[in-house]
Amino acid sequence: MRRQTVTGVVVSAALFVIAATVPVLGSRYYTFVATDIVIFAMLATSLNLLVGLSGLVSFGHAAYFGVGAYVCGILMKAGGVPFLAAWLLGGVGGALLAGVFGYFCVRLTRVYFSMLTLAFAQIVWAVCFKWNDVTGGEQGYPDVPMPDLAFLDWLPWIGSLRSGDKFYFVVLMLATVSMLAMRRIANSSFGRILTCIRDNLERTQFIGIDVRRHQLVVFTIAGGFAGLAGGLFGIFNRGVFPDFCYWPKSAEVLIMTILGGMYSFWGPSIGAAVLIILNQYIVSRTEYWPLVLGAIMLALLFAFPRGIAGAVGAAWRSRDRFNA
């Protein structure tokens, strides 16, 4: 098992280094795509705490992402709250909402659980869509300010970058910290119990585990991280819109998670990267991106039932501990 820990650290470090060198390429476009990928990797990983780790297929994860984005954006623009505090509060907002909704959701199983997460997310969407005074309603909440990144100026090289590149570094740092925290959770005793629940809910009760309580806790945590990702995305997008909470967004993240590989910690991130890059590539060539995406999904689902990461993992004969 030590060997796997070492492999994990090496892989994580390598990914981080690759991600950090993107601004070196000097293209605004590449930095833009990389920021998008990092944020969605974080969101998909948070969803995977539910889907892959605990066997809870949430179909409304976008709600917590959207609420985090609104809380962070509104606090920064209307409240003048400093970026870091607003960002953290966005996460708290996502977690609180997930805690309340999760209380009801974890009482249900399987398809009913998915349906209720969807219904709650749609309620959130409808509220954001209508509550003009606070969220800007249908028009969205535009012009979320870029955080003040002057504190980075003293750094060699980074200090001299364009603001988009600087923001990318901030996103990368915060996302890395969040991902490491999620990884820690997935590999902890709590994570082990969650895999037990996924594997055999009944037996888990009979080893003395309050299954619902554990499910609620992980649901809340996942909502919190989704909120953190949302806060970053609102700034990156220069505005927050009701679409952030709408169900196709939930579907998009679920696709990233499952195609990337829900039984591996890094699978969802791979899914996010692959889908976003493909999207950029195909959209510039044809307007029929959904058709291509649908065809790719069918092909991947048939070819790699355990996702891209599952296929790669099997090829390397290396078993990630996250899975089992």
Binding site: V57, A251, L254, P290, L293, P305
Partner: peptide
């Protein structure tokens, strides 16, 4: 198509039929 996914997990089926939605909607546009 669907025949092959009856025995799979729910999330897998969900994604599978969603892929069909994407394909059909663009096919209709074409």
């Amino acid at each position: 198509l669907l025949r092959f996914v009856y025995r799979r997990e729910e999330h897998y089926q969900l994604l599978f039929t969603y892929a069909l939605v994407l394909i059909f909607s663009d096919a209709a546009k074409i």
